[in-house]
Design a binder for these strands. Structure first.
Lengths: 195, 195
DNA sequence: TTTGATACTGAACAATCGTTCAGATAAGCT
DNA sequence: AGCTTATCTGAACGATTGTTCAGTATCAAA
């Protein structure tokens, strides 16, 4: 046997990434073997190396792809007129985007340590770029007197940690809809930064 | 060679746990071999099995020990007279305790998935017990009208996520002292739950 | 000085790891 | 129909994994 009917790499490539993401998120990068990924896709392990040079690069591509999509998606959110409205947009965007990609988010926060120094720095830079988006909203609002914050960088990290925490407990069909979760978290954030 | 001079069991056991905690936190449970742990302590791998039946139990003991100490330490914090003061005590306690044990905290939040179902459930129960401590403060305050929260369970998880996030960025000798961090986070929490 | 328990070594076990590669199969082009 | 190229198999590689265990050295007690 070799190639299955139909073709080919435009299907297999994404499927490998999808299954790798699922398995890495569930069991951890180091605990998942290339053979497990291949089996989930329906391949032999050797075939994976047509799509990635090695295991670490496969992880890196997942993390990089996620961060790129995160930044791209945020850049398409229209800029609201005032800092409080911008903050509300950010809060709602972050929760919505992260809930749609729970596995990728989990990976991005947990498997950075399995990257070599170069790859690690690349992902860190993207993460900081995202944090800066929120911080500049807070800084502008602070300067305009809408917010009262002892330190905008610290508030940035606190807010992002709080919002990302939604992923650890939210379950589809639970007590709250996504819209309701957005509303509740936005209420808390709004009050926490209020002047 | 065999036993070194002096009796060692009371020394070696804790040292194994300390080195295992450090290595698991840094590289992840699955990425650390028993031989690496043994080398860090100055032993051969086989000697570890005098102190733990297997690798997973070693991890479980670390997580269980951490959660037990967390609950014990919180139970020794004197109960403040009012819900807002109780909340302040909780916020300051959580930040302080977690910063003192960054590695154990990291482990407890990241390596649960490497536990079998029984061990997993045991740690989860302890975590929920801790969350319930905070939630009961919030519920009392809500009933007394000190707090205004759409849902106390959700606020519990949001606050804990925010506080635990300190561990990801705090560095000794950085811009903020621990006391200052406590103050800033307490300010945000206080405002977020305010009626 | 012998004895018995304690603390550990060092070698071995089968299993599994990431990775490579020669060869097989099928699809598309001519 | 034949040729080329893309896609994948199946076997193999050396290294490493968690774990076991017979043996050894040291200690405390007798």
């Amino acid at each position: 046997m070799a190639r299955k009917s139909g073709s080919h790499s435009e299907i297999t490539g994404p499927r490998i990434r999808t299954e790798a993401r699922r398995l890495f998120a569930r069991h951890g990068f180091a605990a998942v073997s290339m053979r497990q990924i291949a089996a989930a896709v329906g391949l032999q392990a050797g075939a994976l190396y047509l799509y990635t040079p090695d295991k670490e690069t496969l992880l890196f591509d997942l993390l990089k792809g996620h961060m790129d999509e995160l930044l791209a998606a945020w850049s398409e959110v229209p800029t609201a007129p005032s800092p409080p409205e911008q903050l509300e947009a950010f809060v709602r965007f972050h929760i919505r985007f992260n809930l749609e990609r729970a596995e990728a988010v989990f990976l991005s926060y947990m498997e950075l340590r399995n990257l070599g120094p170069g790859n690690f720095a690349a992902i860190e830079a993207l993460r900081r770029a995202y944090e800066n988006e929120l911080e500049s909203i807070l800084r502008t609002g602070q300067a305009e007197g809408c917010f009262a914050l002892p330190d905008t960088k610290l508030a940035t990290l606190a807010i992002i940690a709080m919002l990302t925490g939604v992923n650890t407990w939210f379950r589809e069909g639970g007590r709250f809809s996504r819209a309701r979760v957005e509303q509740i978290y936005w209420d808390m954030v709004r009050k926490a930064v209020a002047a």
